[in-house]
Nucleic acid binder design. Structure first.
Lengths: 196, 196
DNA sequence: CACACCGTAGACAGACCAGTCTGGTGTAAT
DNA sequence: ATTACACCAGACTGGTCTGTCTACGGTGTG
């Protein structure tokens, strides 16, 4: 009577997703270090046993949280691939999304940068999740510039990343409008050079 | 026999400075939230009583740490004022310092951005110290662009700040060399426009 | 029905944290 | 010698944190 236990066949459990949704919200708005598991558990309306059944530790949940954010970004870029005809349109789509994010209410900076600020050891799984995301992101942007025929797509991607990170930090800590407009100017300068 | 207790006349205590020096090192390299007071106390070779004599709480010490970093930045800009003849030279002096910082060993990003990532409440004294620093910094850069005769010094300062914050984040989390060169390109573009 | 699995409910341990308190030592000026 | 002060030494409190534990209830399937 060895059970098959087809986990995938069973309906998706709500508790696991509820925990992750709560963690995503609290981790992003208040910081992964500040928010404790007790708070996530109570706001998720689950119990500790359930929590630790799905996430073996808080650090593991933080990694899953970042992986979820990474997944969202990848899905967004994939949607641009199907909705846009040219690499330049895709690039502008990314910029539009970033510039919209930084002036949106409830913006609290880049979740990866914020998480990394609280884990200084580069070998820690959290930092590795951050590095994996940033590596993928940089490569994707570089590919777009290369697709546009940019002479130095690697440099252009670095320029793009610099502006993005700066806008996220500036909008979070200082003036969102100023960071927003400065981001658009910086990107425009990079795009202007790609045509030259 | 009411004592005069002329605190200022007494030789400066070493313990207080030792505590701050230790806190500066640990807070910057490992994060203000990760490092506990016990660690600062033991590495400073002082006792808890001495620690709490000079710093009423850990949060107060964090604020003093940031104020010290702010003071260093102000002293540096003041030194540029005396050593440089033109606003453009001063601006280039700032850029040189930033670009040197990001590729220097032991660089861990902007201490203010890192500290702010762990205090999300804008009303918290730590966040206010961060805001005070950034406001002063932005105004100083804007003054330099204005002194150069830039048509829109406020925008140029935003552009500068964007590049600076981006370089700090990128160098800390990813590729210091890439962030370094991207920073120099971004600043050069802004300076090119100031002449136009 | 019996079983497997979902989830609830909350006590509990062990570690770590910030911050307070008592008492003692060395030194320099009065 | 007495007073004042900087500092040492470390126990202690009260709180919070992560993570483990036991015990029970509901539900759909074979």
């Amino acid at each position: 009577m060895t059970t098959l236990t087809p986990d995938a066949v069973r309906p998706a459990t709500h508790a696991k997703l509820r925990i992750l949704a709560t963690a995503d919200r609290l981790f992003y708005t208040e910081g992964v270090h500040t928010v404790g598991v007790d708070r996530i558990i109570s706001e998720s309306k689950v119990t500790k046993a359930t929590f630790y059944k799905y996430y073996r530790s808080k650090d593991a949940l933080i990694v899953v949280y970042l992986q979820g954010r990474d997944r969202m970004a990848r899905d967004f870029l994939a949607s641009l691939d199907t909705n846009c005809d040219t690499p330049e349109q895709r690039l502008r789509g990314v910029v539009n999304e970033i510039s919209a994010q930084v002036i949106r209410g409830g913006f609290h900076g880049c979740p990866f940068i914020n998480a990394a600020a609280q884990f200084t050891d580069p070998a820690h799984p959290v930092r590795q999740a951050v590095s994996a995301h940033r590596d993928w992101y940089g490569r994707s942007i570089e590919d777009m510039f290369r697709g546009m025929g940019h002479a130095r797509p690697g440099d252009a991607a670095d320029d793009f990343f610099l502006a993005r990170d700066g806008a996220f930090a500036g909008a979070n800590l200082g003036d969102p409008i100023g960071a927003h407009t400065a981001l658009l100017r910086a990107i425009q300068r990079v795009l202007d050079e790609s045509g030259a």
